[in-house]
Amino acid sequence: MSANVLELDDVRLALPSRHGDRTLLRGVSLSLAPGEALGLVGESGSGKSMTLRTVLRTEPPGARVTGRVLLDGEDVRLLGAAALRRVRAERLTMISQNPRAALNPVLRISRYLVEGLCDARGESRDEATRRARDLLARVGIADVDRCMDAYPHQLSGGMLQRVVIAAAMASSPRLLLADEPTTALDVTTQSEVMAILDEQRREHGMAMLFVTHDLELASAVCDRIAVLYAGEIVEIGTPAQLHSAPRHPYTRLLLDSRPSLTAKTAALPVIPGRPIAAYEVEGGCAFSGRCPWVAPRCSEGEVALVHDAGRATRCLRADELTAELAGPAVSEPAGEPVQAGETEETA
């Protein structure tokens, strides 16, 4: 029995396709302490959303998953239908990218909120309605009556995502799975929604697995960040560690390729080549094909994730490159107000 809320142990996932099985996750291991927020950062196709789906067991039909997914020490991959439903109703919750797709368009908001409490958890309808109203008020919705009676198409994206957050908080679950919860929203409401999410999460003491392609956003809300590439974790560390001294070349290049708020550059550096999918990896370091620091030995055999003082890196040359990767600060050092708006609001 571990004290961790969530532990992934060598999770692998393959999807059958016309060209044989396609590997999407190549052994993801990570852990989340109670109340901790872990960011899963990577480009599209890196497997970050798929990782999250193995926890909820909502991976695409036909997917073959191996490895263990321990929620409070219990392997959710082994649960029967009834037990899985109970876990989903009581101990896990999810916020997805597009709230408009997440809600049934022909049912009222009240139905959505009450259903999660009443049908999923067996609370009485009156009690559920009372609690739903309370939850809406707590995510900053002013006109609770109107919101309860509204249909999804009558509310803005930001409002809908608040409703989803409210629903997610309803069961005070141990773990919140957030899959790019602000990507589909317009920029002005993004930080607002993110602030509410962060505040609610802290209030309820939930751990959070936060999937995003936005390293800055993850840095602002997460305690630790795991960088994914081609279906495996290449680096884990705190935002400060990653920003001041990235140890994997990919993390370095990710940091360099985002626009700077202070320094004006002629052209943003772009990571050369295109991201490869997990099933395209042919032995050796998955990133070796695009890495500016690649060495001959990089393509020989698997590279292990090496743990060292609270962080982990999957790079053979991590030690030799330490100085070079930390190198000239193209980006701002962590802790500086890169995402000033958000950090202030969340505080």
Partner: peptide, 16 residues
């Protein structure tokens, strides 16, 4: 549909 998958992921019983 995503809302169906999400309803299931929220633990709403299949019959409902």
């Amino acid at each position: 549909a995503e809302h169906v998958q999400i309803a299931l992921a929220r633990g709403v019983p299949w019959r409902i």
